[in-house]
Design a protein around this nucleic acid. Structure first.
Lengths: 206, 206, 206, 206
DNA sequence: TATGAATGAGCTTTCATTCAT
DNA sequence: GATGAATGAAAGCTCATTCAT
């Protein structure tokens, strides 16, 4: 609303975006505010005109990034009628997201988890943000599954365990992303996921 | 050979063990060498008699811990004849390992992943150690599966994809551990894993 | 002359007044120009339209405050005929001044002393301002005493030492203000001063 | 007791002593830890081996200094039989203490008062230390006065108000010290005090 | 072997001040 | 006349590492 506020918000996002790349590359601890300032093309102390602390930069940057991610996931899968296709589109979107190189989302997830877990981490006292995000991802998957059940495409008995199934699917995707990040055989990653999903779909199809 | 070498190795392990707990609790970056020395009951500079750097302590500690872990996994599952039971024992051992409180293995895995991924991390130039470990876990699972195939308990067609299946199973276990670490509903963790494994076994049983 | 000049002066005083409260509350060093600007309801850089530096704000603010103080002291005591009563009115005015809560004059005096004494303090190179003020207070007391002598109410021999006596009285008032500021038994403050003054008056009365 | 502790304590005192001079000269805020380190002939970070913060250096330094001051005052006046002489010795010691150039005690008192008064000052949450000190000085004076009363040298009626009298005497000494620090006519300082004390003694002598 | 002591390099953060608009 | 934006300089503090003993 206020005409003054927008440029400030805009710049906040610019700084946060620059920071996100560094955090993904080197991690939170190893990224200095000076590096963030350099990457954003401003002076070190200027950063503090927009954020009260390094921690806040991280939280803001991650928040922006995750919100955008969730938004895209929802958008991509929203209007598709066929549940199997919808599930496939969801998986394709996940794979696409994980394929991005800059900033590498797998590294970011690792960093976020770290900062959520460790005492004194940037998200340690804000787990709720991370939990919310995970919950929303689960809800998205659960929604697709229940939609499939109601359209008599997926087996009716999965309705009862839909939340467990969604969590397990996301846990797998988390884990396999991490695995290939460390193993670095990126080319096999998609095959591997496809193989998993094939079994997954088979198991829930009527 | 040298009679002095043995006590040196012993003490290395003592220090590494003390360090491991701190690394798991607070993370690598937030653990200072002084804290490690205190925990090991020695002077700060004495630590440098046994390790050339903080990084080396981490690598050594993690190495010890993982080697022990793998050894235990192999031991537990080695001599069991029934493939289904063997798989269940494997899963039970994994769950038991993940249940340990001190040092929390889930946090350690997160920290290890972090240090493997991030530029300048302690394992960044030693990914091979972490990869080896993952490979050995995969081999263990693959071994169980192939054993089941050859005993005509598991479907023969899984033999072709045994490596993919093993990787996927471990990825899931990784991911679900992380999930519950962040969501903190520990009590549901075992249920969730059991639910997954039930579907998994059903899918591979003849 | 210039019609613009007057509003400028007005605003200077407004800013200085706002600053004075902050200086009294938190001290010179701990008060930032931003806080002063906020308190004055203007932008930070606008402050620099009216003052060339933070130091100048302090000097101006203190100057205004002290000038007003002296003026009031003189006004209150000017027209009283009876020397004893005049002295009492003077003391009563001092006590009243020291009782003010916002801005606390004792804290201000402490801050002024500090800034006068310490190398690089705001008044370090302008001691003359503070000295002038002290001199004028002394002169006021001396005037009261000499008036009493000439009216044959105070002992004639004090005339010779009138300046010493005045300085000592003011030194005492300074010191006792500070004492009670630190000891925080404000309620006893007036009793203590009255006790002192009683002795003082007895000693100089014929 | 512990043989390790003593050298540490010794060095603490050395650093504190070096710091005291700087604090007296430039004030607490304007003295940087680096300057303290330089003055003590050690590296900046070495200071933090001995003190956890700059504030603690100040508190320690002031504490040492004040304890020594009180000790000397007590020593000087302890064994004197004649109450008038004892009072004079007390005053002489005060004057001597205030005459010291390095570190200037008057400046230090000003700085201590400042740090006691201002929110967030080094002594703000430790007023009790400063109050204790003031109380001990008062007790010393009160002791001298009561001794004089019991020896029938000082008027018996002062016994009732001994505490008030002591406070007033010290307030005066505080104030006059400050006065001459600002006015810088040091040479007149002693005359002025002597003049005051002469009147003071006359008033209490039988 | 063991360590107390020392430190340099680097971090996050603050703030008085400048300047284009 | 007023200010939002930017910043250089400096502060307090941490910590892995070195070294003499």
């Amino acid at each position: 609303m206020s005409p003054k506020r927008y440029p400030k918000k805009e710049k906040c996002n610019e700084i946060a975006a620059a920071a996100l790349h560094l955090f993904a590359e080197k991690g939170y601890a190893a990224t200095s505010v000076e590096q963030i300032a350099d990457a954003a093309g401003i002076g070190k102390s200027t950063v503090y005109e927009y954020f009260p602390s390094k921690e806040e930069i991280f939280v803001h940057a991650v928040n922006n990034w995750i919100m955008d991610l969730i938004h895209r996931m929802v958008e991509q899968t929203r209007s598709i009628e066929n549940p199997v296709q919808r599930l496939n589109i969801f998986i394709r979107t996940v794979k696409e997201v994980l394929k991005v190189q800059e900033p590498d989302p797998k590294k970011l997830f690792a960093e976020i988890d770290q900062q959520t877990l460790m005492e004194g981490g940037a998200f340690y006292k804000r787990r709720h943000i991370i939990r919310d995000m995970r919950t929303r991802f689960c809800d998205l998957v659960a929604d697709i599954l229940l939609d499939g059940v109601s359209k008599r495409v997926f087996r009716p008995e999965i309705a009862r365990d839909v939340s467990k199934i969604a969590i397990n699917l996301l846990a797998y995707l988390d884990g396999i992303g991490m695995h290939y990040l460390i193993m670095e055989e990126y080319q096999e990653f998609e095959d591997q996921v496809d193989f998993y999903i094939k079994g997954f779909v088979e198991a829930i199809l009527i």
